[in-house]
Computed example of a mutant assay.
Amino acid sequence: MTETRSNKWQWWVAGLILGFAAVWGVYVKARPADEVVLTIGEPYTQIRQQSRSTLPVLTRDNRINLYVRRPAVLRFSDPQYGFVTPAAKLLSLYADESGKVVAITISPQVDTLKLDEAMPVLIDLQNQFRRGGWQPFRVNGNPPIEDNRDTRVHIRDCAAPTSYWQASNKYQISLNIRCFRSDDRPNDERYLITLDLGTPVFGELPNE
């Protein structure tokens, strides 16, 4: 009798756990993605209020690395030069001493990607820049990244191609893709995209 009751109890607990896992899975899929909404120069406290994210409270010690603890989409909300990224596990903001955000670093992915997965992300971001009026610059040595055979060979050689974009005299972006190979899986090709956004730091004019 005792053994029968024990088995029933174990099955009840197992069913409860499975039921909770199923409900949690539905919730995770239905929950809107986290989102960080900002433009350069906005107060960090305002960005936290208008975003749905895990950005931390600003302190004197963390203002140069204000990062999300759960993946979030970046919505750059400038009315002319705005764009949207895929969800990012690495999204970090940098605030000046007055608490205004002056730079962003983001890898718009939740994991390292195969090249066939990474290239559409790169191309879509550059197309959004073009539609928003961003202009490529430093193109003689660093033209916009294209999805063709030569570029893929270049990327697989771990050359880390980079494109540069400027929005009038307001913002500049550097966008690159580089190899990411772990010691335990040296033959597993994976790639990491990095986008750095801030006020102009290069003196070149667009198309130089």
Rank of each mutant, 00 (worst) to 15 (best):
I106K: 02
W12A: 01
E97G: 12
P161F: 00
A72Q: 03
S53E: 06
P79M: 02
A33E: 14
R130F: 14
A95P: 00
Y27G: 03
D196N: 06
G133F: 13
Q50D: 01
P143L: 04
V201C: 02
G141T: 01
D183N: 08
D96N: 15
R75A: 04
Q46Y: 12
D196K: 04
G133R: 13
T194E: 13
Q126H: 06
W9L: 00
S182R: 04
L197I: 15
D183F: 15
M1V: 09
Y94D: 00
A95S: 05
A22N: 06
P200E: 08
V13L: 09
V23A: 12
G99F: 11
R149F: 15
L74N: 03
L74G: 02
L113A: 01
N7S: 07
E204M: 10
R181L: 09
T85A: 04
I177Q: 07
D157S: 05
S92H: 02
A30I: 05
E189H: 03
D188K: 08
G133V: 13
T105R: 10
E35M: 03
I193P: 00
P71V: 02
F20L: 07
D196Q: 03
P136Y: 07
T105Y: 09
C158M: 09
Q46E: 12
L205C: 10
V84G: 11
A118S: 11
S168R: 05
V84K: 15
G132E: 09
D96A: 06
I106V: 03
S98G: 06
S163R: 13
Q80I: 11
V121C: 09
V121A: 05
V57S: 05
Y94W: 04
R156H: 11
A87T: 14
R152K: 15
Q135F: 09
I177V: 11
P86K: 12
K100C: 00
I64P: 07
F20A: 11
V23C: 09
A118I: 04
I173V: 12
